[in-house]
Design a protein around this nucleic acid. Sequence first.
DNA 1: AATGAATGAGTTTTCATTCAT
DNA 2: TATGAATGAAAACTCATTCAT
Lengths: 219, 219, 219, 219
Amino acid sequence: MRHPASPPPATSLSPTPDLRRRRKDARPAELAAAALRLFVDKGYTATRLDDVAAAAGVSKGTLYLYYPGKEALFRAVIEEGMVAALSLAEHEVAAFRGSTADLLHALLIGWWERIGGTPLAGVTKLIISESRNFPEVAQYYREQVLDRGRALVRATIARGIAEGEFRPLDVDAAVDIVIAPLLLLAVSRFSLPLATGSIAPEAYLETHFELLVNGLKRS
Amino acid sequence: MRHPASPPPATSLSPTPDLRRRRKDARPAELAAAALRLFVDKGYTATRLDDVAAAAGVSKGTLYLYYPGKEALFRAVIEEGMVAALSLAEHEVAAFRGSTADLLHALLIGWWERIGGTPLAGVTKLIISESRNFPEVAQYYREQVLDRGRALVRATIARGIAEGEFRPLDVDAAVDIVIAPLLLLAVSRFSLPLATGSIAPEAYLETHFELLVNGLKRS
Amino acid sequence: MRHPASPPPATSLSPTPDLRRRRKDARPAELAAAALRLFVDKGYTATRLDDVAAAAGVSKGTLYLYYPGKEALFRAVIEEGMVAALSLAEHEVAAFRGSTADLLHALLIGWWERIGGTPLAGVTKLIISESRNFPEVAQYYREQVLDRGRALVRATIARGIAEGEFRPLDVDAAVDIVIAPLLLLAVSRFSLPLATGSIAPEAYLETHFELLVNGLKRS
Amino acid sequence: MRHPASPPPATSLSPTPDLRRRRKDARPAELAAAALRLFVDKGYTATRLDDVAAAAGVSKGTLYLYYPGKEALFRAVIEEGMVAALSLAEHEVAAFRGSTADLLHALLIGWWERIGGTPLAGVTKLIISESRNFPEVAQYYREQVLDRGRALVRATIARGIAEGEFRPLDVDAAVDIVIAPLLLLAVSRFSLPLATGSIAPEAYLETHFELLVNGLKRS
DNA sequence: AATGAATGAGTTTTCATTCAT
DNA sequence: TATGAATGAAAACTCATTCAT
C-alpha cells in the first residue's frame, strides 16, 4: 500500500479522467459488436450506419471517430474475435491427452461454446454473403480462420488414423464432413434453419459426433 | 379470330412476329436468370436493376413490364426452378428399386446434376443471405424446398432402417448430417471454398457418401 | 418542300423524338452555365449541387446523368468556352492589317466583347480561387488559356517593336502590364470593384489603352 | 493586490506563468496567421477548423476560446495587418520630399516590402474569392484598404500633374492602371502565375514603374 | 412493347460547434 | 485555460421507380 503522506502526483498535463478514457477505449469494440449484429441480420449493404450508431448508443458522427468508413467497420467485424478463439483451440488440441474420439468431441463442444453459440457465429453467415464483394477480407478470413480451423481438424483425424483408432481414409474430405454441419449450424442461427430441423444445437452436435465416430472408427 | 392454318401476314409494321413472340415469352425467365446471377454474386441490395437489365440485354424500363419491382424479381428468382427439380427427385425416389445405399447415392448424384452443379445452387447462398429480409419468401422456400428435400432424405434413411440395411438412429439428426455437406458445397461455389478445400465436387460427394454409409450401415 | 408522295421512312427503331434529343444535347451546356454562375458567385466548395440543379431547372439526380460528380462539373466549366474564344482571337490577329496600336486596341475590345463582358469572365475569378485545389485543371488553364493569350499579346508588342512603332523594351514584362488590368476588370465584375473605382468598363479600357500606347510609343 | 516589484511565486501548480501569459497574449495573432495561410490556400469553405487548429498547434476547442466561430476568424484575418501597413504608407507619402516619380517608385517598393511580398498579400486573393459571401467584410475591406490605398496613389498622381511632372490625364483610370499589376502580382503568389510569366517580382515592379512613368511623363 | 431521361428519397460522409472534464 | 470526444445538420452521391415518347 502506498504511504498516506505521499499525495498522488497532480499531473495537470493529463486531466483526462478514467471514466472517459475507459469509455473511449471500449468504443471500437462496442461499435464493432453493434455492427456485427446488424450486418449479420440485414447484410452489409442493407445496414445503415445510422442504425449501427443507434444500436451502439452513439451518434452517426461518432462512428467516424473510430472507423474511417463503412468498409473499415466491416473489416474490423470480420478480423476480430475469431482469430483469438482459434488460437485458444490450437493450444487445447496441442495439450490434449486422451483418445482421439474424445479430442474430436472436445473440439465440437469447444467450437460451440466459443464460436458457434456466440455472436461470433454470425461472422460465418456474413463472410458467405459478402466474400465476393470484399475479396481481400475473404482472403484474410480464409487464411486466418478457415485454413487454421481445417488444419486443426485434419491433425485430429490424422492422429486417430496414426494411432489406429480410426480407419484409413481421405483425410481432407473427412475434414469437410466434420466441419460442414458446424458451419450450417452457425449459419442457421442467423437465417433459415437449414440444419437442425427441430432439435437443439447440443443434441445436434452429439448426433453429429456419434455418426462421425461410428463412421470413422475401425469396425 | 385468326384461322389456325393461315400464318399472320408479315407486314412491314410488325416484322418477325414469331421471333418477337418467342422472345417475349422467354423474357421473364431470361430476366430472372440474369437477376439470379447478380443477386447471388453481389447480394440483393447491392445489385442494381440497371445491371440486371444490362445483363439481360434490355433497358431498365423493360424490367418493369415483366416484374412490378425489385422484390418481385427476387421472389421469382427464389420460387422458380428449385421446385421443379424437387418434384422430379420425389418421383425418382418413389420409383426406385434397389438397395437403400444405392438410393442414397442416386440422391446425391441427382442433386449435383440438377441443382448443386447448376446456377440453381446459387439460390442456396441467396436464401442464406436474405432470408431475414424477406421472411415470407424464406417461409415459402422452407416449406417448398427445404422441408420437401429433407423429407426425401428422411424417407430414404427410414427405408434403410426398416429394411435392416441401416442401424437404428436419430433419423432427423442424420438427415442434417446428410444434407449439410451438400449445402456447403453449393454455397462454396458462390463464396469462399468453405467445403472442398481442394478436391473436385464429385470426389467430395463420393467421400461423403462413403463416410455416411459406413457410419449408417450396421457394422 | 418535300414531295407529298414520299412518306418519311417509318424508322420504328428510332422513335426518339427530336424534342427530347435536342433537350438532351443541350443539357450539359445548360448545366455547366448554371454551375459557372454559382461557382463564380459562391466559390466551388460553398456551392451546393442542389442549387446548381435548381438553377438549371432539373433535379439533383439529373446532374449525375451528365457529369459523374462535382469535380467533373468544375472541369467542364473551366475547360469550355474560353478556348474557343481564344482561337477566334488568334485568327483575327494573324489576319490583321493596320498599325500595331490599332491591333492592340482591337485585342482589348475583342477581349471585352467575347470574354471580359460575358459570363466567361467569371472563369478568371474561379481559377484564381480554386487553382490550388485543382492543380491539373489549373495546369490546363495555364497552357490552353493563359499562355496562349499571353503569346498573342507578346506577338503584338513584338510586331510593334519590329516595325519601329514601339520603342524597345522588356516584352515579357510589358505583356503583364497589358494583361493585368484586363484580368482585374474581369475579376471585379464578380467580387469587389478592385479595378474601375467608378468608371464604366469601356472607358476604363480606353484609358488603359491610351496610357499603354503613350508609354510604349517611341516618344 | 500583487506588489508590482515582486514577481508571482512560481508554484508547482502554475509553472512558467510568464511564458504562458506571453503565449496567451500571442494566441489570437498566431491563430489568425494560421487561418490566413489555410484560407488563402484552400479557400474559406474548404478550410477545416481542425486544420487551422493543428497548424497553430492547439486543439480545436481552443480556437473557440479566442474566436466565437469560423466567420469571426475570417473577419479577424481580413481586418488585421493590412490597415496598419496602410497607415504607415500614408505617413511616408505625407512626409515625402522629392520628385513624384521617386515617390511613386517608393510606393511600389514599399508595397512589396510590407504587403506584396509578405503573407498579407494572401488577403487579396482571399477577398477576391470570398467577398460575395461576406458582404460586410468586403465593405470594410473596400473602405479601409482599397479606397485608402487608391487615395494614396491618386494623391501621388495628382501631385505629379499639379507640379507639371506628369501630363494631365484621367486620374481615376490611371490609378487602376497603377494598382492592377500589383494586385495581380499578389494574387499570383497564391494561385496561378497570372502575372510575371517568368520574371522575378522585383524586376516586374521595376518594368511596371518604368512603363508607367514613361507613359505618364510629359513627353 | 420498349426505351431511357428524369426524379427524389435515402444513404454515406464531413465538419462547425458544443461541452464535460 | 485547454482539451478532444461527441453531436447532428448539411452536402455529395446512388438508385428504384416513373413516365413521356
